[in-house]
Amino acid sequence: ESSAAQLAANEREAAWREMAKQVAHEIKNPLTPMRLTVQSFQRKFDPGDPDVVKKLEEYSNTLIQQIDTMSSIASAFSTYAQMPAQQDETLNVVKITKLALDIFNEDYIYFFSEEEDLIAKFDRTQLIRVITNLVKNSIHAIEQRAPEHPRIEVHVYPEGANAVITVQDNGIGVIEANKAKVFEPKFTTKTSGMGLGLGMVKKIVETYEGTIYFDSEEGKGTTFKVAFPRKL
Rank of each mutant, 00 (worst) to 15 (best):
E58K: 06
K21A: 15
G48Y: 08
A8H: 08
V52Q: 05
M19R: 06
K54M: 07
N10C: 12
E13N: 13
L56W: 01
D49G: 05
T32P: 01
E13I: 11
V52N: 06
N29T: 13
F41T: 09
D46F: 08
M34S: 05
K44C: 12
R43V: 14
T37L: 02
D46E: 15
L7V: 10
N29W: 11
M19T: 09
L7D: 08
I27F: 09
D51R: 00
K44H: 08
L56V: 05
S2D: 05
K28T: 12
D49Y: 01
N29F: 09
P30V: 07
W16V: 06
K54Y: 07
K21Y: 06
K28E: 12
E18K: 08
Q42P: 03
P30M: 12
K21M: 08
Q22D: 05
S40E: 15
K44W: 07
Q22A: 11
K55T: 00
I27E: 00
M19W: 01
P47A: 09
P47Q: 03
R12I: 03
V52L: 03
L7R: 00
A9M: 04
E13T: 13
N10V: 15
N61I: 00
E58L: 07
F41S: 12
P50S: 02
V53I: 12
P33E: 10
E11V: 13
T32G: 11
S40P: 05
S2L: 13
Q39R: 07
R35Y: 14
S2Q: 09
T37R: 02
K55N: 04
E13Q: 13
F45G: 06
E57T: 12
E1S: 04
N10D: 15
K55D: 02
I27H: 01
E58Y: 03
R17I: 14
E11L: 15
P33L: 05
L36H: 15
K28C: 04
E11N: 14
M34R: 06
V23G: 00
D46C: 06
A4M: 10
V53F: 07
K28A: 13
P50C: 09
A20C: 03
R35V: 15
A4G: 01
A4V: 08
N10W: 04
E18G: 10
W16G: 03
K21P: 00
N29L: 13
Q39V: 12
P50G: 05
W16C: 09
T37G: 05
R17W: 04
S2N: 04
K55G: 04
V53W: 01
A9T: 04
A14F: 09
A4Y: 02
F45H: 13
E11K: 13
Q6T: 04
Q6S: 05
L31F: 13
S60R: 11
K44S: 14
K44M: 12
L31T: 15
D49Q: 01
T62Q: 02
A20V: 00
S40K: 11
N10P: 01
H25I: 05
Q39G: 14
A5Q: 10
H25L: 13
A14G: 06
A24G: 03
T62W: 00
S60E: 05
R43I: 11
Q42I: 15
R43K: 13
Q6K: 01
S3C: 03
E57L: 12
R17C: 12
T62K: 01
D51S: 10
A20F: 04
D49W: 03
L31G: 08
S3G: 00
A14C: 07
L56E: 02
A24N: 07
T62F: 00
L7F: 09
